[in-house]
Amino acid sequence: MSGAAAARGLQALRATSISLAAIALALAASAVLILLAGADPVAAYWALLQGAVGDGFALGNTLARTTPLIFTGLAVAFAFRCNLLNIGAEGQLYAGALASVVIGIYLTGLPSVLHIALSIAGGFLAGAAWGGLAGYLRAARGINEIISTIMLNFVAIFFVSYLVHGPLAEPPGFFHQTAMVAETARLPVIYPKSDLSVAIFLAVAVALLTAYVLWRTPFGLKLRAVGESTGTARFSGVPVNRYVFGAMSVSGGLAGLAGTTEMIGGQYRLLDFFSPGYGFDGIAVAFLGRSDPIGVVFAAFLFAALRVGANHMQRTTGLPTSLILVIQGMVILFILGVAVLEWYRRRQRG
């Protein structure tokens, strides 16, 4: 056991050091941009840090924002372990949010624990159905999951838009939003001034569970086997198509939970275009976390901190918040750079 753990630990350490190096390089490169913009990089980064984790309120906001990113990051990472690119976490998030809100609003009179559990289950299943649809198309019809998930994003987002404009709009219908979910469906709030609820614990627990499934269950082993080599998986008796479908379903379910926790953990109602792109950020989070569930947790925290800290940085230094997008982009670029370097070195040796 210790040997396996040590080997995995070493691997994780290497992956972590690469991610950290990429972050450091991205911050250094962005410092040059800040200088060019006529500001002091040290002051800017200090303001960023203050804004992200400077006090309880800031930290609460950062953690609240971390929650959906963990789920979408896990969703992308899980699919990627099966060599599938799920670009549809955004749409699956909307599907999950829709199911959770409907359960939260219309299924009243339940004890809170049960109501919350049903809402979570509904969100997972709705996301899983949406992801599974792309998985089915890939497994049964050979349709590229990248294309289908991108397309299904639009379907989900605009279907929700239609619902909040009409069928599900809160009476009398002035605002394009649903009613609020019942008190019994809401997750307990940890830090009242921020949006932070116990959803963050749920997210971390699901990350640990995901890691367990991937590395400690036959399902996870076979799923990763399909991701590593379809040929070997097929010749070993793994029903490849079923695993493709399964991986996309679970991936969609994880993304659906991001919608669920947004709904019953802070926003409480469904609005038009309520997600600021958590599903798409999930791709970057999974990448920075090297498709490792634990890495995803930390990457999600970093991305959330950058986003939350950006406002404070803008107020104190006058730098635009869009600088954060530049930093995020550069982190990804540097990781890609390292990946290319590694690939090149391997090729040189081989």
Partner: peptide
């Protein structure tokens, strides 16, 4: 390489696959 083994996986996972 393509139908027998999972090249980047440890030996024990390859042995256990079936």
């Amino acid at each position: 390489h393509h139908t027998g083994l999972l090249m980047s996986f440890p030996l024990w996972e390859n042995l256990a696959l079936k």
